[in-house]
Design a protein around this nucleic acid. Structure first.
Lengths: 350, 350
DNA sequence: GGAGCTTGATGAACCGTTTCCATTGAATGT
DNA sequence: ACATTCAATGGAAACGGTTCATCAAGCTCC
């Protein structure tokens, strides 16, 4: 029992909870009719609908979600399971999803799986018993499958899984965009910091780089191992990869580096800095993701921005049947765009 | 095994949902008894309790939360309203709360207020109608009050409000700790980057700095305006503040700077770097918060770490009545600790 | 003009729990 | 031994909506 404070002002006067029957009585209709008004059921006269709405407003009636979801089939709750909420990409995703859901009268239950398949399964089970109307999942990296009751829609985000409906940024074309930007500036020796090779998005990003490099003469040959470094997505790995790519004589090392994540890019900038290579004068750097941090570096990072808000909005729209579920092996890809910072310029003449 | 196109494995076979009556029938008891077992009601024989538990297990019975919260008074749901989920401090708070809640069989509904009082009120209203069992609130900065139905416990976190039960890090003593650390290293001219002056935590942190400085001879005088810069909590403001504090001849400028946030501290490091002041050789820097980013800088930032997990765990425990609600004007303060990085050392001799 | 439809609204059943009250059998008091 | 408590359990009402089977009334169409 919470302490009965002496503070009267804090609490709303405890009104004798108004229920659907009160509304019905006041409006002179049946509870069934009120219910249909509430759910925008078409078979209610406009005139009657208006009257009932009036009474609802007047009484300040709020339907009880528990009761609704018990008899009815909808809970107006969406579950979202992500590996790690402290990852800025995911926290922005959750925040955007919350916004999108709120616009439709839905709320979000968040859960973190810590990139652990067993925890992920447990979380999904909990959401199932909560009767959520849909699940947004960023699956953990271990290979695994998902057990779901029939009829509960799930949409996999970012880390696509074959066999599940998915939605993600178009990493491949996004990276291509970024690399082409560098090409247009005149760069030819463009290094690439790849993500961990087992990661699906990392593979897509590498593809995008190769796509772009193939366009230039000899690009295929140039994009050899001496220009590609594999690294985890984090800052320190990016720094090490940058060191590796830049530890060569000036006319041998890349004049530009595309990193698969902003954190890598920032690490790489640090490496360049430590080597005395000025950015963007002697080295252009482009990141990927568009996290807030990317605009806080000095100079501000040029990066390929993922459309997180659009991804979240689309995921919610799909779960709410406002938009068709994509085919199991035909995910929706949303295009990225370049956010120009101050880390790119034309290469210095050799 | 990779999910086959005809995804049999994806869905659990649609079992004819097992309810409490099924359990009761199988166990040869009444539904009331099963319910009492479920809720750990004391008046059930151990023997019977065990048998019912067995059946529950065997049937894989999961009680329906909607039904429970409709008839009963608990929803096993906790609402958490924060200004901005992309702020690393808050996202860690939410994640920790989710963990703590999960340990008690509770789930979390997150909502963001965008630091807007009206939105905050709306969110709280939604949570109320969801019948959450408690609310964790990081209030927005505008001055305002909170309307709540009687009996719904709320706990204000981080940004304490007089008149509401609260829990937060002990900012004042935390800062004192950090400054004393600098004092022990031998620093005397210690600059301070303060937070925005209207912010309650910022005021507390400034107090902590003054507390520590008063201990040294002439400290009160030294901690004058030339050593204190006010700034927003963000990176760029920290950089500007750092520029301001450091734009003096070497023996006039501070040998150490304590920043009120890690982001400020990182901005300040950038400023020092741009001025050619090596860290920690010629300048020690200490931050506040302990966000993950602080360990990703080069050199790693020494910072005063807020006990976010403990704050979250305590907030949840209080809402679940595992721990008494603190008095309205007597918030729980949890102590911070120093996380030693590489940005502090003894001052160079003048 | 009446059979067949359609439309709009009704009222009761129902969803799956919790909780109240009644009941029972055992334990206790005298 | 009998009345009185008490603990453990059964049975059913209640919670607050949604939905389904009905029904009355207004139309259409030969």
């Amino acid at each position: 029992m919470p302490p009965k404070g002496e503070d009267e002002g804090t609490y709303i006067s405890a009104m004798p909870k108004v229920g659907i029957r009160d509304v019905a009585r006041l409006a002179g209709v049946s509870t069934g009719t009120v219910s249909r008004v509430l759910n925008d059921h078409p078979s209610v006269t406009d005139e009657l609908r208006a009257r009932v709405r009036g009474i609802i407003e007047e009484l300040g009636y709020l339907p009880d979600p528990s009761a609704r979801s018990m008899r009815g089939k909808v809970s107006r709750l969406i579950g979202i399971v992500i590996p790690d909420l402290t990852n800025p990409f995911f926290s922005e995703l959750v925040q955007s999803a919350e916004q999108a859901a709120a616009n439709h009268g839905y709320n979000i239950i968040v859960m973190t799986s810590f990139d652990h398949a067993a925890k992920e399964a447990d979380r999904i089970g909990q959401l199932t018993s909560r009767k959520v109307d849909g699940i947004i999942l960023v699956p953990c990296n271990d290979f695994h499958t998902i057990k779901l009751p029939k009829g509960l829609p799930i949409i996999v985000v970012d880390r696509l899984m074959p066999g599940y409906s998915g939605i993600a940024a178009d990493h491949r074309n996004g990276v291509r965009l970024g690399v082409e930007h560098l090409l247009r500036l005149g760069h030819r020796r463009i290094g690439f910091i790849s993500g961990p090779k087992h990661s699906v998005p990392a593979k897509d990003r590498l593809r995008g780089y190769l796509d772009a490099m193939e366009q230039i003469q000899d690009g295929g040959q140039m994009a050899g191992p001496s220009l590609i470094a594999e690294a985890a997505f984090d800052y320190e790995s990016g720094r090490l990869a940058g060191n590796y790519l830049l530890a060569r004589a000036r006319h041998e090392r890349p004049t530009a580096i595309f990193a698969s994540s902003d954190q890598q890019a920032i690490g790489c900038m640090r490496a360049a800095h430590d080597l005395g290579i000025p950015i963007p004068a002697a080295l252009s750097v482009v990141g990927f993701d568009g996290i807030p941090l990317s605009s806080m570096t000095t100079p501000r990072l040029t990066t390929v921005k993922q459309p997180i808000q659009r991804i979240a909005a689309a995921a919610v729209a799909i779960l709410l049947n406002k938009q068709p579920l994509p085919g199991l092996d035909d995910p929706i890809l949303l295009s990225c765009e370049i956010s120009e910072g101050e880390t790119t310029s034309a290469p210095q003449p050799d």
